[in-house]
Amino acid sequence: MSDATFRPATEETPLARRLLITLVVLGLGLLVLAPLVVVFVEALRQGVGEALASLTHRDAWAAIRLTLTIAAISVPLNAIFGVAAAWFITKFDFRGKAVLITLIDLPFSVSPVVAGLCIVLTFGANTAIGGWLVGQGYPIVFAMPGIILATMFVTFPFVARELIPVMIEQGRAEEEAALTLGAGGWRVFWTVTLPNIRWALLYGVLLCNARAMGEFGAVAVVSGKIRGQTATIPTTIEMLYQEYLSVAAFTLAAVLALLALVTLLLKTLLELRHADQLAATHRH
């Protein structure tokens, strides 16, 4: 038997392999990579100058500033929640833990539009809470607080669900040792826990941020899409697109696509270099 025809019994025939690889490459290329490429092609259709000019437009600039502000507020808040929830869930034993974890994960299975609807029904001007807040001069819906709430809702589980498995795996022994040696609670957290979870935390924050900056459905419902005031990058893309300002729409889209690419790159880097300190589901 020649070497060329030898094949372990646990492998497919070379023909089958080649067929499957071709199928998968074609599928991903057409379904996923082509849309990505099109964003940049359409943005640069009339040249780099035109694309950059559309970015400096007042509304585009306002949208970028608003999106950065929203992310700068909602991502740290969700990071604090994620760390607190992971600490509470992994360092203590209590009844109803499974229910709590399910409730934290809930936003992932709710449609963003329904999430926005929930916030409108809670804090809208015609509700009890919302009406009172508007009376005090703090409108929630069609204003920044509503957009922050909507963004926090859709990104709520990201940090917690990344930290919980990591902290379960690491156990409590190190913290207990530090406590026995006389360290206070905060000292234990900063010097023992945080160094152990920093990469997982960064990973969660990274994904949370990407989603926060790109959220469309929930924000579209609560923001009112007031140009220059409550229009984020994604809602501005919609408005520009519907006004047939294709280059401007796709240039803003390209900004978000670049953000997505950078996020993916950093995510892959984290997975390669710190796989042992990330949640088990991401190890591959």
């Binding site: 360092k91 926090m152 913290e175 207990e176």
Partner: peptide, 28 residues
């Protein structure tokens, strides 16, 4: 449990979960 931070972590967890997720879904 000898672990510190029960009140703080539980407080943050339940308050934020209620404010951001549970009360809005409850309203619907």
């Amino acid at each position: 449990s000898p672990m510190p931070g029960l009140g703080l972590s539980m407080g943050i967890t339940l308050t934020m979960l209620s404010l951001v997720v549970l009360i809005p879904i409850g309203a619907l």
